[in-house]
């Protein structure tokens, strides 16, 4: 829509400026007027629905309906004709290298496991260590900093980190500088090398996951650190007096008390892992066996012009994410209830 029309068409501008607030006001006043006419008993049951109504309407209009549309589209070819499960068949064709299989393997295996574990492990270790550091807030801000960087910039930075020059030349990438200088090993083509085998190329996937982990560790750190601070100091002192060493205290007292938060952060990270897109898009464009579902969906739609295939991938992704999302919400509610 061309919003410039609002400046040339003054009556429309007036309607927008005055009409929208008037409509909202009328909705509130009108619904309150109706609610007041109800009996005392019915009123508290009905009133909340009027207040969440607009939000429900917006979610339905902009999320639910498109999602349902995507489901229908995933059963159609590019001309809009119903083809049953054809799109899904082609996505699941030729195991293990055809269709969406590489993307599924990368998402559900490499990303889900390593991205989540690395981030949780780093976040937890840093939270516990920084808790004992004098300039804790400064150090925490440093780790949190990558969260402020656009993920595209993050990809570019890590492309530099992983740069490859032929053996014998001076290495411009930090990683290969370390590999050649410290380990006296030939430089590694981190993003292209499908080590150990092209069907199980863990190296370049881990290189991408490492970059993404660098970007998200601050998120895990901040939340886990808050959970750690929530543990009363005298519990740890009691454990010390009870004869427990610091590692035992972590294992028997700190870790169990942080567990609910770890689960919430973990499931959030699982959702992030399943939705991974930007790092892959910038650093490898899904080549060399590093494709992921979200990038495949984008590719199917814009590069291959296959809207049915893209919709099928979107639905596969949705089906993978929804159970995690429900679990996450339940767990979050359980943590809140325990406070």
């Amino acid at each position: 829509m061309d919003f410039g029309v609002l400046l040339t068409d003054l009556p429309t501008l007036v309607v927008v400026i005055l009409g929208v607030p008037a409509l909202i006001g009328a909705y509130i006043v009108g619904s309150e007027f109706l609610v007041r006419r109800l009996s005392d008993k019915r009123r508290p049951q009905v009133r909340p629905w009027f207040w969440v109504g607009p939000a429900l309407f917006l979610v339905a209009a902009y999320l639910l309906l498109p999602a349902i549309g995507t489901v229908f589209q995933s059963f159609e070819n590019n001309n809009g004709n119903f083809i049953g499960l054809g799109n899904y068949e082609s996505q699941f064709a030729n195991f293990p290298t055809g269709g969406a299989w590489v993307a599924i393997r990368n998402n559900v295996f490499f990303w889900l496991i390593f991205y989540t574990l690395f981030t949780l492990a780093f976040g937890l270790i840093l939270a516990v260590l920084f808790d004992r550091v004098l300039y804790e807030n400064i150090v925490k801000s440093l780790i949190f900093m990558p969260m402020a960087i656009s993920s595209v910039a993050l990809g570019v930075i890590w492309n530099f980190m992983y740069q490859y020059q032929s053996p014998g030349e001076s290495q411009l990438g930090t990683m290969n500088a370390l590999v050649t200088f410290v380990l006296h090993h030939d430089p590694v083509s981190w993003l292209q090398d499908q080590w150990p085998t092209p069907t199980f190329n863990i190296l370049n996937n881990l290189a991408l996951i490492g970059a993404a982990t660098w970007g998200i560790t601050g998120f895990a750190l901040v939340i886990l650190s808050a959970a750690l601070k929530g543990i009363p100091a005298d519990l740890l002192e009691a454990a010390r007096v009870d004869g427990a060493g610091e590692l035992t205290i972590f294992r028997r007292v700190i870790f169990p008390l942080m567990m609910p938060t770890i689960v919430v952060v973990g499931t959030t990270l699982v959702i992030f892992a399943l939705k991974a897109f930007d790092v892959v898009y910038v650093m490898t464009a899904g080549n060399y066996g590093t494709d992921v579902l979200a990038y495949r969906m984008y590719n199917q739609l814009y590069t291959a012009g296959n809207s049915g295939g893209a919709s099928a991938v979107a639905i596969i992704l949705l089906i993978a994410v929804v159970p995690v999302l429900i679990f996450n919400l339940r767990q979050f509610r359980a943590v809140e209830a325990r406070r």
């Binding site: 002192e237 009691a238 454990a239 007096v241 009870d242 007292v253």
Partner: peptide
């Protein structure tokens, strides 16, 4: 603290 063989009761009780 862990090697002093003392026991302590805290004001907040500090139960796990």
């Amino acid at each position: 603290a862990k090697d002093r063989d003392i026991a302590m009761v805290f004001q907040s009780y500090a139960l796990y």
